[in-house]
Design a protein around this nucleic acid. Sequence first.
DNA 1: AACACGGGGCC
DNA 2: GGCCCAGTGTT
Length: 359
Amino acid sequence: MATPADALLGWYDRHRRTLPWRAPPGAPGGGRPDPYRVWLSEIMLQQTTVATVGPRYRRFLERFPTVGALAAAPEAEVMEEWAGLGYYARARNLHACAKAVAAAGGFPHTVAGLLALPGIGRYTAAAVAAIAFDQPAVPTDGNVERVVARLHAVEAPLPGARPRLDALAQRFLADPAMRARPGDFAQALFDLGATICTPRNPACALCPWREGCAGHRLGIAATLPRKAPKAARPLRHGAHFLLLDGAGRAVLRRRPPEGLLGGMLEIPGTPWREAPWGEAEALAAAPFPGVPGDAWRLLPGVARHGFTHLEVEMRLYAAALPGLDAPPGTELRPVAEARAALPTAMRRLLALADAAGLG
DNA sequence: AACACGGGGCC
DNA sequence: GGCCCAGTGTT
């Protein structure tokens, strides 16, 4: 008898997406992909779109082709390669996880074993176990939550409904067709959510599960899943100080390993606070006490950047001290190279310098 | 259970 | 300008 998983896998075999981390059908290895590549793609894809990840995944793999190569690399190089991707704890945990896996001689094959590694939570453990090792596991991501919420017409809002939706998703474990192809089933669920059961304007007419979908039957599929309203993001203000050495190099500082932009390089600045910084107090708070106040020039413009839970407006002061040495706790980097290594908020500041002709 | 944690793409 | 994305770790 044809089960729901049969129907979905049949659809997947005809309509699956071609993705850089996905072995083409009939590829060598029996379609069983390299666990390192599966794991890397899953970490990159956390809260990050397929379109964004594609080129970054290829570039990362070229620089760190194996888990051993990644484990042996200095942390600063890993952070630099991750610059611009966001959620930098992922990069720190990725590196720690690579070291653990390299020391153990390979990835664990089970959900429980994977769950014990840094940066691997419920979702990623299930995804890697299913896709790389064909273990019966259902990874519940945003796609799966949406599909299941519609399938069962769950009207309770996220995030409260998350455990309920995950429990409904785990029911697929009882479907023998799913157990025959766990990795394909997980990816079929992703593809269904990404191409048919989309957040807006779902293409229900093309859906292999249309018949059994309660949300579709009730005419509310497109409105699910419901979401709780989000809190407003407070606005903060900062002043940053671009110190140049007259030879195209800038003074950068590494942020503390935890917290916002943890472990990333930055253009040194004041704390980000509620009130805007006046010029006099900004100069008094400059993180370069050795540089005389009248050496700084306030550049025109404001760099605005939104984080997950706050928004920041930054002003940029610049000074050039030919022949300077990097103050303790900082490093001197060519501006062009620094741009690539900096998180996006700092790149926006650099854009102010470009506009002022300091690039 | 609630919150901290980035950034790009798309409407 | 708001929403969404192959979530995790901490409190």
